[in-house]
């Protein structure tokens, strides 16, 4: 199968959907050139750097029969649009009794490692998971980013596509034919017996590397990639933990009230899963600090394959 990079696969998903549905248009502060060349400036709108207005305009156009894509670029830029995201987009369908749909896609890169310091290295998806009325996903492969983006564009709700900045150049197989990936379906990336690692995006790859390392020590690790955050596939995560009896959650975000806390709770509050636990769930997350600039500092803040492997060894000691 041909290979595409993560960002090429994302672009292909958008271009294919825009060819299929003339109601889709795209707003971003700097238009993506291949899209602009193919679809022209009516559908690929160059906008001022005003994410609050763009987000609201997207909501209004969605409620008026269009299917807008609002590209925030980096997640950090969407914080000036929090009223529109939290008070408007997330609530407008519910608050008005479901009168009309708001098919609306937001795109934002997340993650660190770029040596760009605190404001440009964020992974705040759990803030959005906490808001009822938004769907969201965070893919780990080119295949997934394309399939999930297509599902998002065809969904009749506000959806946030969080895209890992560390993975934009990652290459992987992407079929030429049309396909979608449903929300709420986690994928077991590697099967194992002794421990389950639930990891997101870049950390899926680190977890797989850690699993290779642990395999040499005779430790068999299962790696589960949730792919979509809302809805979250609690069933598959629980099934894996019931099998292995041990859970480690790896997240590029800090632990406090985060995705990792949610997964730990989903597993612990389920009687059947809790009964199978051989050790308390363990979280391997970023430190709960703003992300620093200097490589020495930044590397210290983020989890990696070594910390994940060390965490699994601790789980087995317990």
């Amino acid at each position: 199968m041909r290979e595409l990079s993560y960002s090429e696969a994302a672009l292909e998903a958008i271009a294919e959907e825009m060819r299929r549905d003339p109601r889709i248009f795209y707003m971003s502060t700097d238009p993506i050139l291949p899209l602009l060349q193919e679809f022209g400036e009516q559908r690929i709108k160059a906008t001022p750097i005003t994410e609050a207005a763009l987000t609201g305009i997207g909501i209004g156009a969605a409620g008026s029969g269009f299917r807008p894509i609002v590209d925030w670029r980096q997640v950090t830029f969407c914080f000036v649009a929090m009223d529109q995201i939290v008070n408007q987009a997330a609530k407008i369908h519910y608050m008005f009794g479901g009168q009309v749909s708001f098919p609306l896609l937001f795109r934002a890169t997340v993650g660190g490692g770029g040596r760009v310091a605190a404001q440009h290295s964020q992974s705040p998806y759990s803030m959005f998971m906490n808001v009822a009325g938004l769907k969201m996903f965070l893919p780990s492969t080119p295949y997934d980013v394309k399939g999930l983006l297509k599902t998002a564009i065809r969904d009749n709700n506000p959806v946030i596509s969080f895209e890992s900045s560390r993975l934009l150049r990652l290459k992987g197989p992407v079929p030429e034919e049309d396909y979608t990936i449903p929300f709420g379906e986690a994928l077991v990336r590697r099967e194992g017996r002794d421990a389950t690692i639930v990891a997101l995006a870049w950390l899926v790859h680190e977890a797989l590397a850690a699993a290779d390392e642990l395999d040499k020590e005779g430790i068999s690790v299962e790696v589960v990639d949730p792919r979509s955050l809302v809805p979250l596939d609690a069933e598959r995560i629980r099934a894996s933990v019931q099998k292995t009896g041990r859970l480690l959650i790896a997240d590029e975000a800090g632990p406090t009230a985060g995705f990792s806390a949610e997964v730990a709770a989903l597993v612990s509050e389920d009687r059947a899963t809790f009964a199978r636990l051989k050790a308390p769930p363990k979280r391997v997350c970023a430190l709960q600090v703003p992300i620093p600039y200097s490589p020495v500092l930044e590397n210290h803040v983020f989890p990696d394959r070594n910390r994940i492997a060390a965490g699994v060894r601790e789980l087995l000691k317990a």
């Binding site: 305009i57 909501i59 156009a61 409620g63 008026s64 009223d83 529109q84």
Partner: peptide, 25 residues
């Protein structure tokens, strides 16, 4: 009627999106 809105200035951007929709229509 795209809604009464409890956030001051909250509706201005949304209805501007309706204006964009009208232009595109």
């Amino acid at each position: 009627m795209l809604g009464a809105n409890g956030i001051v200035a909250g509706g201005i951007a949304i209805v501007t999106g309706a204006g964009l929709a009208a232009q595109m229509e």
